[in-house]
Nucleic acid binder design. Structure first.
Length: 262
DNA sequence: GGTCATGTTGACTA
DNA sequence: TTAGTCAACATGAC
């Protein structure tokens, strides 16, 4: 479930496995995920180069080459990375496989092909002008966070998930953040007062940081988290009342009707 | 066979 | 201008 914490985990995985290694070859398993780059353009762009560093903005992972180029990865709903030895079999839905000179591979797997891979020359332009992303949810200062949300007439859940306002939060983590802050997902963003916005900000940082520390694995999440209960017993971990769900904009919000009343 | 699923985008409507 | 809904993208689970 690639939202901010998942992508941050991918970034650390990428850093630990794939930096400073010569790229020998590239195989494209599906051209559907390529954007603004052809199969041959991607192969030529990567061959004989190496990655030197990475950055993450919201749900985007940006891998910098030893020249000015940057490879952008977005994971859609089902994407992930796998670094593996030549002798191991490749993941089922690898859409891109990079082979390093050391004999290892890095695969980008995306079952549903909803992700995105591209080569860009200007990261800043891509983030701000092309995608118009808001500040990363883990780097936004409190005053900016307050301004962003009090300017929105949308429901708070929808405002949190709007990547143009704040980058990185999706359906699952917005449920968790709102649960921890005790806020009903349908409350209008601009109706939240300063105090509750500060609480929301703290919940957001706390949830994202905890999730990253637990490698974004819901099985490891603390008992106080609502995420494992969305698809689990369907009960509030705090008061055991059955969780409610509501559909908006094609997404399902899960929340506790008793604990989330702000 | 129908419905649903963690994301994004574009069309359309209010 | 700002939001909300819906369909589309492709695939698998139930």
């Amino acid at each position: 479930m690639p939202e901010l914490p998942d992508v941050e985990v991918f970034k650390r995985y990428f850093d630990a496995t794939s930096l400073h290694q010569e790229i020998e070859g590239v195989e494209v398993g599906s051209t559907r995920v390529l954007r603004g780059t052809s199969q041959s353009g991607l192969a030529e762009g990567l061959k004989d180069r190496s990655f030197v560093s990475t950055n993450r903005h919201g749900k985007y992972l940006l891998a910098h080459f030893d020249n000015r180029l940057v490879m952008v990865l977005h994971f859609g709903m089902t994407g992930y990375l796998k670094y593996f030895k030549q002798t191991e079999k490749d993941p089922l839905h690898d859409r891109l496989m990079i082979t390093f000179a050391n004999g290892f591979h890095l695969a980008y797997d995306s079952q549903r092909k909803l992700g995105e891979i591209r080569l860009i020359g200007d990261e800043d332009d891509f983030i701000h002008r092309q995608k118009r992303l808001g500040p990363d949810a883990l780097r936004v200062p409190l005053p900016d966070f307050r301004d962003i949300l009090s300017a929105s007439r949308a429901a708070i859940k929808s405002a949190l998930m709007n990547q143009q306002r704040l980058a990185g939060i999706g359906n699952v983590y917005s449920d968790e953040i709102l649960f921890q802050a005790g806020i009903h997902p349908g409350t209008k963003a601009r109706d939240l007062d300063e105090k509750i916005l500060e609480k929301l900000f703290e919940s957001m940082e706390d949830v994202l940081e905890k999730a990253i520390a637990l490698r974004a694995d819901p099985k490891e999440f603390p008992g106080s988290f609502i995420i494992p209960h969305r698809d689990g017993d369907g009960k509030c971990p705090r008061c055991s009342v059955p969780l409610q769900s509501e559909k908006t904009a094609g997404r399902t919000a899960y929340f506790c009707p008793k604990c989330q009343n702000a």
